[in-house]
């Protein structure tokens, strides 16, 4: 029971924590690259977490009602919508992060900074809504049971590992030299956007809204999804050992939209101020 608590909470917390670390690393990059011109605050993070937790709780108490909608595939459809929106907002973030290509660009002019903050809030709220609702559902089922202490201890260990991995990822990303940090951030952003799109496709396939496509490959023997590394890879880059062709396509398209953004070109192609 203890190990179930660890695995379930770790999966959910790790994904949300890594997403938050990634966004905060982007903020750090903007504040470093545009020092003196602008300073994007991080106060929204607390509000986003509170709003996300509130939405997650509302969603979890209405799970049964939601699941009955759309001919009993309501949960799949709602989760697919949440994943699609997350992917969309992540792509928007990639296009809104100011790049060095915009000579004389002022982040504070216009509504770019506000739009960027709104997109980041949306991504965090959606991540916590998605992952938090499952933790609430899990916690609700555990309370009052004999094994509650053992499961909750497992949950705490899982949450601790997830949050600490997020903290270390943030400091690792922000501690890198500027160009390397931006490269890692944009790459992770592309992988996360692709992962969200791929998850949306998987959920829509499960709901039978999209017809099933054949399995593209199976790498279960190389890296099992159930292993610790497999779980970390799932949370970080959306690793699946046997994805369908449609999932692979969605992953590719989601990632591509990020990789063709100006900030990605700044990180990977153009000569920037740090060269």
């Amino acid at each position: 029971m203890f190990i179930n608590g660890v695995v379930i909470v770790l999966q959910e917390i790790l994904e949300a924590a890594l997403m938050l670390s990634l966004l905060l690393s982007f903020l750090h990059y903007i504040n470093r690259a545009y020092a003196g011109q602008t300073y994007m605050r991080r106060t929204w993070v607390t509000y986003s977490i509170v709003i996300g937790v509130l939405f997650a709780w509302i969603y979890s108490v209405n799970f049964s009602r939601v699941s009955e909608a759309f001919d009993y595939v309501g949960l799949e459809i709602t989760n697919a919508t949440i994943h699609s929106l997350s992917s969309l907002f992540l792509i928007c973030i990639a296009w809104l992060v100011p790049s060095r290509e915009h000579a004389g660009f002022q982040l504070n002019s216009g509504h770019r900074a506000q739009l960027l903050t709104v997109c980041m809030i949306a991504v965090v709220v959606l991540a916590i809504l998605r992952e938090g609702s499952e933790i609430f559902q899990f916690g609700g089922g555990v309370l009052g049971r004999d094994e509650a202490t053992s499961i909750l201890s497992g949950g705490l260990i899982g949450a601790g590992i997830g949050v600490c991995t997020g903290v270390l990822l943030y400091y690792a990303l922000t501690g890198l030299p500027a160009r390397l940090s931006l490269r890692a951030c944009t790459l992770l952003l592309a992988l996360t956007a692709g992962n969200m799109a791929s998850q949306a496709v998987l959920l829509l396939t499960q709901a039978d809204w999209i017809s099933y496509s054949s399995t593209a490959w199976s790498s279960e023997s190389l890296l099992s999804e159930a292993s610790v590394v497999g779980q970390l890879a799932y949370a970080l880059i959306g690793y699946e050992s046997s994805p369908s062709w449609l999932q692979v396509g969605a992953y590719f398209i989601g990632g591509l939209f990020v990789l063709v953004s100006p900030i990605s070109r700044t990180a990977w192609v153009n000569k920037a101020h740090w060269d």
Binding site: F2, I3, I157, G160, I161, C164, T165, V167, L168
Partner: peptide, 20 residues
């Protein structure tokens, strides 16, 4: 943050290993 995170991570992973 980094020291506590590393301590927690190592201890918890060790605890999981110990548990198994």
């Amino acid at each position: 943050a980094t020291i506590v995170a590393i301590l927690i991570l190592f201890n918890f992973v060790a605890a999981l290993q110990g548990y198994q």
